[in-house]
């Protein structure tokens, strides 16, 4: 043992030899630099420039006028437009329906799979498949399933006597939002299942057993043992999926392009249509800026309300 000590002392004096010595903080910043520089170029600069553009009129159709300061005009136009308000309505229905549906199915499945079932891991793997399928593929697949004439959705519902005539699930403005949401629930529930199942497995067995011995019913165990234990992870899971579902573009664009008319035009679709189809860059940026501010406020309130204590990342 005594031989080791001098050796390590010797080595640490070697470390003092003149070479590039960074403090831990400098070393830490150096490690962060590649990620930060990339994100500054791909996220921070585009974000700031987007906010800047939202106060300007800039049309790619009318390049001669260039970028012109218009103050709050874009925002005033948006807030007084009923079309814009209905985009928000569509977005909120889509997000609430998707996240609500995904969470309920995912949580229920996690609770079921948390039991002692044979082949549990196989079931879990197979149930993850919808999440693995590329989004474009799942959107096209559901478009085929919802096909009015030859789609199996109509055929199955009709055979079961649930509907009396074949419906245009994609083509009918009153059904399209439902269809798109259903496809999105199918695609997204496994994520919630996997996250919540992992969290359920961290609940110590002895706590659950103690509750059983104390005569707690299954419902009481759920309410007083499981839910408090999962509160943090449920909060993170919901927050992430709400943010992601707001961003959801591919499923809707592939299935309906935001139509028929504007029945499935969410914020994500609306920005794309405004900026890249009507080439009204300033207005597209304004839609994004309001959305961003709304998301920031929502996230802070959400974490405050559900998180209680400080959030550790």
């Amino acid at each position: 043992m005594s031989a080791i000590k001098p050796a390590s002392v010797q080595r640490s004096t070697v470390a003092v030899r003149p070479r590039l010595m960074l403090t831990n903080t400098q070393f830490s910043i150096l490690l962060l630099l590649p990620a930060l520089l990339t994100l500054v170029f791909t996220v921070l600069y585009p974000l700031l420039r987007g906010i800047y553009l939202s106060f300007h009129s800039y049309s790619l159709v009318d390049l001669a006028s260039g970028i012109q300061w218009v103050g709050l005009d874009n925002f005033k136009t948006l807030l007084s437009s009923s079309a814009y308000r209905s985009v928000w309505g569509t977005t909120l229905i889509f997000v609430a329906g998707s996240v609500g549906g995904q969470f309920l199915v995912g949580f229920m499945t996690a609770l079921v799979l948390n039991q002692d079932l044979a082949q549990r891991n196989l079931f879990r793997g197979l149930l993850l498949m919808p999440w693995i399928v590329p989004t474009v593929v799942s959107a096209l697949l559901w478009k085929w399933i919802f096909n009015q004439q030859y789609g199996i959705f109509n055929y199955v519902l009709h055979s079961l006597g649930i509907i009396s005539s074949f419906k245009a699930w994609i083509g009918d403005p009153s059904l399209a939002l439902f269809s798109v949401t259903l496809a999105n629930i199918w695609k997204g529930f496994p994520f919630h299942m996997i996250v919540l199942l992992a969290a359920l497995q961290t609940i110590p067995v002895d706590i659950v057993e103690a509750a059983i011995i104390d005569g707690a019913t299954a419902l009481q165990r759920f309410r007083y043992v499981v839910l408090p234990h999962l509160r943090y992870i449920i909060m993170i899971d919901l927050l992430i999926s709400i943010i992601w579902t707001f961003q959801s573009f591919t499923t809707i664009w592939t299935m309906t392009e935001g139509g028929p008319v504007t029945a499935t035009t969410t914020l994500a679709i609306s920005i794309y249509r405004t900026a890249f189809q009507a080439f009204d860059i300033g207005m597209g940026a304004a839609i994004g800026t309001i959305w961003l501010v709304a998301m920031l406020i929502f996230s802070v309130l959400f974490v405050r309300l559900l998180g209680g204590t400080r959030v550790e990342l």
């Binding site: 553009l53 994500a268 920005i271």
Partner: peptide, 13 residues
């Protein structure tokens, strides 16, 4: 929190 920045907005720039 960059996850909540609208992708369409970033895409413009």
């Amino acid at each position: 929190s960059t996850q909540m920045f609208p992708q369409g907005m970033l895409l413009i720039t």
